[in-house]
Amino acid sequence: MDIDELEIIIEKNKTQSPETFNEILNVTIPFYTFYKQMNQGICQLEEEKYRINHSEVDVLSSLKILGDKDYILSPKQLHQKLLFTGGAITKVLKKLEEKKYIRRLDNKYDKRSKLVQLTKLGIEVNDKVLKDILDFEEKCFSALNEEEKQTMKNLLLKMTK
């Protein structure tokens, strides 16, 4: 989508829905359009190249980054870090275990739950998919020079305060 198409969408919103139009749409429509394109590209890359979904990547990455030295977390820790429902985390863990990306270990502190450990294959897949995601994101931001990227970063950080 180019700038002219975005301007048409914003103008259409302004004329067809003046009661809900706000000038902030000049910022939010391009922001969400970019985010949607980037997110769809990442999900497509994950699915087509790795046969993995974004939730599964989130779990693998969490185990690698937040896990202990052996890449182990409890399902409860994953649930808290990722804000998944209990049912959702169980479903994702089952898929990852079937793919041999994780293994379930006995928990000596809580016999009712099993710990989750990233396998060697899981580490390899996680590293590859994250590299590809970063390469894709780099392409998404390639229209910006380094100064513009820094400005964008600063503006986004300013808005998160």
Rank of each mutant, 00 (worst) to 15 (best):
D132V: 00
K108I: 05
E137Y: 05
K120G: 11
D135M: 10
K153L: 14
L115S: 01
E137K: 15
D127Q: 12
Q117D: 04
I123H: 10
K139D: 11
N107T: 05
V116K: 02
I133M: 12
M159C: 09
M152T: 08
Q117K: 07
L155Y: 09
K161F: 07
K131V: 08
M159K: 10
L134S: 08
T119F: 02
N126K: 05
L115G: 01
D110P: 08
E146C: 03
C140I: 05
Q150K: 11
N154C: 02
K149N: 01
S142D: 11
K131L: 14
K108W: 06
Y109I: 00
E138L: 11
K128N: 10
T119A: 02
Q150H: 02
M152F: 12
L130W: 09
E148S: 10
K120I: 09
N107W: 06
E146S: 12
K149S: 00
C140W: 04
V129Y: 05
Y109Q: 15
I133Y: 07
C140S: 12
K149C: 03
N145T: 02
E124P: 08
E146G: 02
V116F: 01
E147P: 00
K111Y: 09
T119K: 03
G122M: 03
K153P: 00
K120D: 15
L144A: 06
G122L: 07
L118Y: 03
E146Q: 14
D135Y: 08
L121F: 09
L134M: 12
L134V: 15
N126A: 06
F141A: 14
S113Q: 13
M159T: 06
L121K: 14
V125R: 01
A143F: 11
D110I: 04
I133E: 13
K114A: 12
I123A: 12
V116H: 01
E138A: 10
D132T: 08
K114Q: 14
M152G: 09
F141D: 05
L157M: 12
T151L: 14
T160L: 14
L157K: 06
D110F: 04
E148H: 06
D110G: 04
Y109E: 15
E124S: 14
L157Q: 10
K149T: 01
M159A: 11
E124F: 15
N154Y: 02
K111V: 10
K161N: 14
E137S: 08
E137C: 13
K153I: 15
L157T: 03
D135G: 04
I123P: 00
C140D: 06
T151I: 13
T151F: 12
V116M: 02
K161S: 10
D132W: 00
D110L: 02
V125A: 07
T119Q: 01
S142K: 08
N107I: 01
K128C: 08
Y109G: 14
K114D: 03
E147N: 11
D127G: 01
L115P: 03
L144E: 05
K149I: 03
N126F: 02
D135S: 08
L130K: 08
N154H: 06
K128Q: 13
S142I: 03
L118S: 04
L121W: 02
K139M: 15
L118H: 04
K108N: 13
